[in-house]
Design a protein around this nucleic acid. Structure first.
Lengths: 195, 195
DNA sequence: ACGCTATCTGAACAAACGTTCAGAAAAAAC
DNA sequence: GTTTTTTCTGAACGTTTGTTCAGATAGCGT
């Protein structure tokens, strides 16, 4: 059932998530207090608990949402023929998707240790599913004879580390445009696994 | 002047640094209390302040020491002739050095945001000096015609991200030995910048 | 044996933490 | 316009934080 536009409750929940996301990415989960998050939303700390059960769940929700977004975005992406075309699509998709979500990516990589073991396993499982897609592409390329990688599992981690590294320096409006970055990295990725 | 073997003061300082290093790497700087560090050393929290001025300086010292170790180790390393040989030496050195110090590396990359701006600039400056060494190798290789990289600065970051990524999965005693890892990564690095 | 210095304990400090909750305020429903 | 439901405030809770310090303890040179 729809609510009228100015309603509080429809807008406060997302605003909490956004504020927590930004603050966690900037200062780290453990260094951010519930009062800081509340202040950024313009509300008292107690009010947060109408939307989230506790701080740990807030972090988990942010990570979970990011990984779900990632997996459904890559699933919706066109899947060309041939390992080479598929690797190019994956490379460009990864750079574009991650560069649009620097805060989410930062949190998803750096705050894993603040998850309890069960939640950690959940997030790691989602990440594993994403990595397996790249690994599959590399294996296919080896079969086709267009790639030469001695260990597809390691090559997967190497390529993903290289691509995710873009987030440590890329800023929109900087020296290089995103298409230029895509081009440079695709060139390096392609060559690094080439036969 | 030398002290006798069982002396307290010669041994407690380093033990604090070791404990802090391990705990910071495992749980994050903000999540570790001075009492935890003291407990790991076997001492009360107040005693720590005979060795360090405050918590922030403890973190800075750990990072500073790591970066100094890195820069002096790379300076002591043999410097072969030719960009290709130099890149191979750099690649193997980086993997070996970083895989021997997983905790230091983790902290040096993840706890930068817990440094005040001045200390942050210090550490970033040291890291920049290290990265410049690789960038120089790449530029030399382009001049020699053995490398083809459109943007040496970006290629430097890409290669370092790939190499440092080893630390996220490599464990001594795992499926692959360190020489095998070196071989796989050197193969990928070499091809990724090849002419 | 004695004094000197370095080191540690254990308590204390104010501040900040995550979380709870009774009651005020506001919005929705009728 | 009144009731019902949702949302927020503001204070309070017990704990924990980094740091300080007076006094106890212990190792050193002489």
């Amino acid at each position: 059932m729809a609510r009228t536009q100015g309603s509080h409750s429809d807008i406060t929940g997302p605003r909490i998530m956004d504020a927590a996301l930004r603050l966690f990415a900037q200062n780290g989960y453990a260094a951010v207090s519930m009062r800081q998050i509340a202040g950024a939303v313009g509300v008292q700390a107690g009010a947060l608990y109408n939307y989230i059960p506790d701080k740990q769940t807030l972090l988990l929700t942010l990570m979970q949402r990011h990984m779900d977004d990632l997996l459904s975005a890559v699933a919706d992406h066109p899947r060309p023929e041939g390992a080479m075309n598929r690797l190019e699509a994956f490379t460009r998709f990864h750079i574009r998707f991650h560069s649009e979500r620097p805060d989410e990516v930062f949190i998803a990589y750096m705050e894993l240790r603040n998850l309890n073991p069960e939640n950690f396993a959940t997030i790691e499982g989602l990440r594993g599913r994403y990595e397996n897609m790249l690994e599959e592409i590399l294996r296919q390329g080896v079969e086709e004879g267009v790639f030469a990688v001695p260990d597809p599992k390691i090559a997967t981690l190497a390529v993903i580390a290289m691509l995710t590294g873009v987030n440590t320096w890329y800023r929109s409006g900087g020296r290089l445009s995103l298409p230029e970055v895509e081009e440079i990295y695709w060139d390096m990725v392609r060559k690094s696994v080439a036969a």
